[in-house]
Amino acid sequence: MIRMLTGALMIAATFAAQAVEIGQVAPETRGQRLLYEQSLDIKELRGKTVLLDFWASWCGPCKQSLPMLDQMRTDLVAAGYPDMFEIVAVNLDEDPDAAKKFLKRYPVGYPVISDPEAELATLYKIPTMPTSFLIDPQGVVVWRHEGFRASELSEIRRRLVQTMNGEQ
């Protein structure tokens, strides 16, 4: 009986420890794109720095973060970083139509994948909404950013550029 209990506790501890940590290779991250009949796997983006951004249409700060991240992406492409990075948004709405409605109002130029069952959110153990992860060209998670305020965009941009330039 005791052995069984110890075993159960050890298994529970193993699952609890499986959150994505800084310095760890990003887990398998793929999903169906929200607006297109395509799937996307971030492994396809190896060699580029990826900003993986988890959001939902009902999340207040996301109304600010999506347009601002899109503008930052446009600015960085214009600044000479066209093929060095990509932003990938992961939508956590249970109803994908709500997300589509949101994107009609706040369109973005980067890919959005849908995660209505929150499998990726569980895998990455999202602590708050929105949360973004910076993944370097080798696929290693190098930074995590929780929440969003307009004043924090410069820090996100700085980290992104640093990672693209290999200065971590």
């Binding site: 988890f54 009902w58 207040g60 956590l92 929150a118 959110a121 999202i126 602590p127 909404m129 949360t131």
Partner: peptide, 11 residues
């Protein structure tokens, strides 16, 4: 609740 389960509360 998990952060992504708060959609109804945000209504």
């Amino acid at each position: 609740l998990k952060p992504w389960e708060r959609g109804n509360l945000a209504e």
